[in-house]
Amino acid sequence: MSPENSIPLEIHDLTVAYHKKPVLYGVDMEVPAGKLVGIIGPNGAGKSTLIKSIMGLVPPSSGWVKIFGETYRKNAKRVGYVPQRESVDWDFPVNVMDVVLMGRFGHIGLFKRPGRKDREIAMACLEKVHMAPYAKRQISNLSGGQQQRVFLARALAQESDLYFLDEPFAGVDAATESAIIEILTELRDRGKTLLVVHHDLTTAKSYFDMLLLLNMRKVNFGPTEKVYTYDKLQKTYGGRLTILSEIAETRTKQSSDIPLEK
């Protein structure tokens, strides 16, 4: 598909604004292949926004993103995504198998239905997350941990090279957490690249190869042992970036109240 040495994810000067208020400033980064990357930062630091704007769910106001050297649209098939669990309605009339099969939809052509092979892949993915006995279960009857496993199985069914996971450990039990991290490590060992939004500093150090410290801008990005230091974490979490957020505030007010060109 693309050259062996191409970079899974390259971001250049990515700026994102919600309702004209910037939430992410000029993020640059290059993620090498075969790494398990944690995205760390306080609430409202723009962690979810970052991965959403990489995938084009939130339009960036400037900057660009390349997935294996191409635009996201071109390489969407090579990307797997686990959204936040709360982002969907768990009373939706589908069962576990239906959800995991959605992971195959990117590979099935237009007008086509998932076939036997897709079902086999989906079933194998359910087995990997120990959810095979629940295949026919309606999704509203699942616990939080089980829901998260189903989402992970769907991402596995995508058979991608680059994965984005938005808070996969939020509100799950310890057993699910360790099952998930095991699967993620295994994917990493098979050369896949994974970006995980995470908010537990205590486990971040042991889970990830690389860390991106984020607080409205990139504070630091690099191998965990170099980035996970008191100074750098302090810089990420300690003290709001007062000037930056003030300017953002003023700009929002200006653009809505007073026309800029006067």
């Binding site: 649209r73 969907v88 939809f105």
Partner: peptide
């Protein structure tokens, strides 16, 4: 079911 996911697979 999942608007964001649908978008992410290029739909």
């Amino acid at each position: 079911f999942d608007y964001g996911f649908a978008n992410s697979i290029g739909m």
